[in-house]
Amino acid sequence: MSDSTGKMHDDLIDAVGISDLTNYLRTQPESVRPGLVDNFYRHVGDPAVPEQEADMLPRSPIARINQIRTPLLVTQGANDVRVAKAESDNIVGSLRPRGVDVGGGRVPPLVGGQARDLLRGRVEVSLRRAF
């Protein structure tokens, strides 16, 4: 799989599970929306603007799902209100029927470095399995 720079990768990690940029931005909680104006809307696009929405879908991971052939570790925070579980489920559900090795799951609510340590452990297990 190549990234946006064309560099090839033997395995991939999806740390938050966003599959569709337009859906991701549309489902943000009201408390997060003011912060979207100066970052996501400016750099990614505003799905309320038809031209920008049309540009966002081809850049969404789900639009390139058929290019993923290598093992993928998908993680999503259990209490992360910014990324709906359906987003990561969409990625996993599109890959497994094609036989792509998908691991990971929901990261339980943790504090401090616990989430980092849990994710690091999942990455190490995934890499061992891939190689």
Rank of each mutant, 00 (worst) to 15 (best):
R98H: 08
V16Y: 05
T70P: 05
K85T: 09
D101M: 09
D101V: 11
V44P: 00
G77V: 02
Y24L: 10
I68V: 14
N39I: 07
Q52W: 00
S126P: 03
P109F: 02
V102I: 04
L21M: 00
S2K: 13
S19G: 10
D20L: 02
L25G: 01
V107S: 11
R96L: 08
R96K: 12
G17Y: 03
F40T: 03
R96D: 05
G35K: 01
V44Y: 00
R26I: 02
N39V: 09
A63M: 01
I18F: 04
G35I: 00
L119V: 15
D46S: 04
L127S: 05
I65D: 01
E87P: 07
G113T: 14
I65V: 13
L36V: 09
G104Y: 06
G6C: 05
R129D: 13
Q76G: 05
D117A: 13
A78W: 08
I13V: 15
N23S: 14
K85C: 07
R106Y: 08
N79V: 14
D3K: 10
P29A: 07
V102H: 06
S4D: 04
D20Y: 00
L21D: 00
R26W: 06
S2H: 05
S31Q: 04
Y41Q: 05
V16F: 10
Q114D: 15
P34S: 06
Q114V: 14
V83C: 04
R106F: 12
R129C: 12
N90L: 07
E51Q: 09
I62W: 01
S31H: 07
P97A: 06
P47Q: 10
V92T: 14
S94L: 12
S94C: 08
L36Q: 03
L95C: 05
V37H: 12
S60P: 07
G99R: 06
V83Y: 01
P29H: 14
V83I: 13
R116D: 11
D46V: 10
K85L: 13
G105C: 03
D3G: 06
L119E: 13
M1K: 05
Q76V: 08
R64V: 04
P97Q: 11
D3W: 01
Q67V: 03
L127Y: 09
R33S: 02
V32G: 02
P58R: 10
V125E: 15
L127H: 12
R128D: 15
T70G: 05
F40R: 02
E53M: 03
N23H: 13
L95A: 07
V123Q: 06
Y24K: 06
N79S: 08
N66E: 15
P58C: 06
D10Y: 04
S19A: 15
K7M: 10
E124Q: 15
